[in-house]
Design a protein around this nucleic acid. Sequence first.
DNA 1: GAGAATATGTAGACCGATCATCATAATATT
DNA 2: AATATTATGATGATCGGTCTACATATTCTC
Lengths: 197, 197
Amino acid sequence: MRRKAPKGRETRQRLVTAALSVFHAQGYRGTGLSQLVDASGFPRGSLYFHFPGGKEELAVAAITQAKDEIGAGIDMAFAAAASPAEALSLIADAFARELETSNYARGCPVTTVALEAGEDTPELQAACAASYEDWLARIETRLTAAGFAPERATRLAAFSFSAIEGALILARARRSRGPLDDVAAELSLLLNTEKSS
Amino acid sequence: MRRKAPKGRETRQRLVTAALSVFHAQGYRGTGLSQLVDASGFPRGSLYFHFPGGKEELAVAAITQAKDEIGAGIDMAFAAAASPAEALSLIADAFARELETSNYARGCPVTTVALEAGEDTPELQAACAASYEDWLARIETRLTAAGFAPERATRLAAFSFSAIEGALILARARRSRGPLDDVAAELSLLLNTEKSS
DNA sequence: GAGAATATGTAGACCGATCATCATAATATT
DNA sequence: AATATTATGATGATCGGTCTACATATTCTC
């Protein structure tokens, strides 16, 4: 039995996954350490063994995981869609579904935390910023591949992403996926007309 | 001396103004009661006299004030601008300026609080939603007045506002007003071409 | 494979901060 | 003078994140 996989890795992973889930729904400051360890099933001290930096370090790991998961989702959307416009609609739809199934509690996991991260949590702030950059870079790459000029792709990526993120906030407040659908429709209109010109 | 103005009103008002300022920069959960009373200059008990509901009731009052202030700003922007596109640019610019002068700490005061408001603070959630509705209604009215069809105005208002809110988040994370300027430019392009068609 | 060294898991005590409450005092109003 | 309004800050119960001390498991060295 050459168990090459250290048991600690799995513990750490569960800690991160559970933390992401709770942070996603309740935010950073809204979540206590007790909730984090309860959600993971591990005792209090295990958290400080794997994350000596405490709550913030755990949050950074959770945000990084969210970055990877959503980043993969973006790639999948563009791979599955016939056009950039359709891909953005798929992305908006994915967010809308999570919003609905969570009774409008779960918006963008990164944004929820990003707005709470101030000067007292610089690493958390950096992790959130890194997520946005990662996602924007992915969208930009795909837009370029679809034929948009480089500078145009950069701006369109930021514009599209901003619109979806803003719609996510509005949709949560309104308890309706409407804003997300509307934004997806508008973006489709914009991208398709521009491409054909 | 028929002092008809009760002294309590002023105290209450100062409490609200100070609270809005602190909530704007630090969020709801990130702000302690001590900071709120320190910022107002009044002692602890005064807060609970004027706001028996405690922190949440004070936050509701603060968000409502933010709604009125920004709502007035929206009206002013549309009144001062020659076109809806220009008005939206003015609004985005106002947000961008506050972001810059606060070292990227102050985004949209309502959004900062809205994402932290969960099921445990339903009245705060409602106050935030009411703010968004108020702003959207103002934008929609102006778009209709500018010649857009009613249904079109509703969707364009939500789309424009979503884009600006999303850009605000991105701008804060990036510590750059770039996203806001880009969104304003894209929206101008969109609104102007559509109107002339 | 035996024993040492390290890695990981577990439990709880700590101090500080939090929000909310209260009894009391000061001031306005009638 | 009598009553209602407003101001005040000490107080308590609770919960927050961090840390230390100990138990167990895993890996390394010989």
